[in-house]
């Protein structure tokens, strides 16, 4: 099966000499839900800019469903929908007009464009706001408007650059549901996000980019397997006067009612609870100190930084 996206030796050097991409290779399978992660300035937005033709690449090749960016740009663009990080629509126009005009640029006749605009604006909860100047919409609504606009030509590959940035939790979760549905319908999705919980929850495969290089390109499951130690926070019923000694588990007292424990994957947490019970320490609840992916991400990026230096 032809991959949804194939990137080979992609480089980008900006006019000021800054090398944003240093020869990245990336392949995303059709139907995948892929996370492209990286710290600020790592090269995520440059990569997306090149895919969407808003940034000129310096060298390398890009194919979307086998359509080459240099040889068949129009065919490639028809397969691709992009939701950028920044708002890039005329805020004086109405959502319905924005979506219908975008359909027109893709050659979709007005009648069909109107039907699709109604469908996607409704699905994204914007139909009631279709005739309101878009500057009056909230930040979350503007992001959903850009998703509706990106879907109106029914792309096979949808790229979202930080789609939930600045969106409240409730709305974020409803967007996750919407994106999952799209993926189940067969649309390949590539997502960049700063919310690693979002990537862990939604994506099956992951690429981590740092300093213009891909430092990790694997499945989410395999990546999480690499996490050997997890840090848990335990909320206690009674305050502790000193740090309890738990054999085999490094422990710290965050405050008299919160215990921080490091657990190696091979140890499991049953033995930990047995020791706590033996000492009469009652645990009310348990949570990860940081998101699991976040711990890995930080260690990978730190390792890459140390390697680079």
């Amino acid at each position: 099966m032809t991959p949804a996206l194939t990137i080979r030796q992609l480089t980008k050097t900006y006019g000021n000499g800054f090398q944003a991409l240093k020869g990245i290779d990336l392949e995303v399978a059709e139907g995948d839900f892929f996370a492209l992660l990286g710290p600020n300035g790592a090269g995520k937005s440059t990569t997306i800019g090149i895919l969407s033709t808003l940034v000129n690449k310096t060298s390398g090749t890009v194919e979307v469903f086998g359509r080459d960016l240099d040889r068949e740009p129009s065919a490639l663009k028809r397969c691709l929908g992009v939701v950028p990080q920044e708002f890039n629509f005329n805020q004086f126009e109405k959502p319905f007009d924005i979506v219908v005009a975008q359909a027109g640029y893709y050659g979709i006749p007005a009648r069909v464009a109107g039907e699709r605009a109604e469908r996607y604006l409704s699905e994204l909860g914007l139909w009631e706001k279709r005739n309101v100047p878009s500057r009056m919409l909230s930040g979350g609504m503007k992001r959903r408007l850009m998703i509706a606009r990106a879907l109106v030509h029914q792309p096979r590959l949808l790229i979202l650059d930080e789609p939930t940035a600045g969106v409240d939790i409730e709305l974020r979760r409803s967007m996750w549901g919407f994106l999952t549905e799209l993926n189940e319908q067969g649309i390949t999705i590539i997502l960049t996000t700063h919310y690693l919980e979002e990537a862990e929850q939604l994506c099956r495969n992951i690429g981590i980019i740092d300093h213009g290089r891909i430092v990790e390109h694997t499945s989410m499951r395999e990546l999480l397997m690499k996490l050997h130690v997890e840090t848990f926070l335990l909320d206690l019923r009674s305050p502790q006067q000193g740090v309890p000694v738990l054999e085999g588990y490094p422990v710290a007292l965050v405050d008299p009612l919160t215990l921080e424990v490091q657990v190696e994957k091979s140890q499991g947490i049953n033995a930990l609870f047995a020791q706590l019970a033996a000492k009469g320490i009652e645990v009310l609840s348990l949570r990860n100190k940081t998101n699991r992916l976040e711990e890995l991400f930080v260690s990978l990026v730190a390792k890459n930084l140390a390697g680079g230096q």
């Binding site: 969407s52 740009p73 663009k77 890039n88 629509f89 005329n90 126009e93 924005i98 893709y106």
Partner: peptide, 16 residues
């Protein structure tokens, strides 16, 4: 105006 609002990107990403 389309450059200012960045809506020129709507045209640039399209196959037009």
């Amino acid at each position: 105006g389309t450059k200012f609002h960045r809506s020129v990107e709507e045209l640039m990403v399209s196959p037009a």
